[in-house]
Amino acid sequence: MAITTNGHTKMKNWLLSFIKEGQYTMGGKKYKTPIFKTDLTGDVITFYLYLDDSVSGNITRFELIDKDGDTFDDQPDNITKPNINGLLVSFKYTLKRV
């Protein structure tokens, strides 16, 4: 028996509410950043982190932090961000009923 439509919707909403904030590593130090935006379109859930022009340096990792304070997901990277523009990072998940 498959999960119901209602159960599927609740799982997507749970994921949206479970992620608390973002984090990035720059110069070996971790910095917290709020979730800039979330989007739920069909089965696709996207979390966006935005680093404005006040942040500059070599960034080696982006993370999503859950409500328990643990890393939910991370993306290793190696990007040098200048202070003349912002940076938008996305984490995208698809929750499908099969």
Rank of each mutant, 00 (worst) to 15 (best):
D43A: 12
G57A: 07
K32S: 14
E63K: 11
F62N: 04
D66A: 06
D68Q: 11
I84E: 05
R97P: 01
K10G: 00
F36E: 14
V55F: 03
R61M: 15
D66K: 02
S56L: 04
P82K: 00
L40G: 05
T25M: 04
G7K: 03
R97Y: 03
R61A: 09
G22R: 03
D74V: 00
L49V: 11
W14Q: 08
D70M: 11
N6L: 14
G42Y: 03
R97T: 15
K10P: 00
N58P: 01
I45Y: 06
L87M: 15
V89T: 08
V89Y: 07
T9Q: 14
D43E: 12
K37N: 10
K30L: 04
G42F: 03
F18E: 12
G57R: 02
I19P: 08
S54A: 12
D52I: 10
I35K: 08
T46A: 10
Y93C: 10
T25Q: 09
L16T: 05
I79V: 15
T80P: 00
G86K: 02
G86M: 00
S54F: 08
T80Y: 11
N83M: 01
K37H: 06
G7H: 03
I45R: 05
I84W: 13
F18A: 14
K37T: 05
N58E: 14
L88T: 15
L16Q: 09
N58V: 14
V55S: 02
L51I: 09
L95A: 10
T4G: 11
L88E: 11
D68T: 13
I3Q: 11
L49R: 08
N83R: 03
S90I: 02
I65D: 03
T41S: 15
E21M: 11
K20E: 14
T46R: 13
N78I: 00
F62L: 06
L49S: 10
T60C: 06
N78R: 02
V98N: 12
R97A: 14
T94Y: 03
Y48A: 10
D66Q: 08
L15Q: 01
E63P: 00
K10H: 10
D70Q: 11
K30F: 02
D53L: 05
R61Q: 14
M11L: 15
L88Y: 13
K12T: 01
V98F: 11
G86Y: 06
D39Q: 13
K67C: 06
G22I: 05
K30H: 03
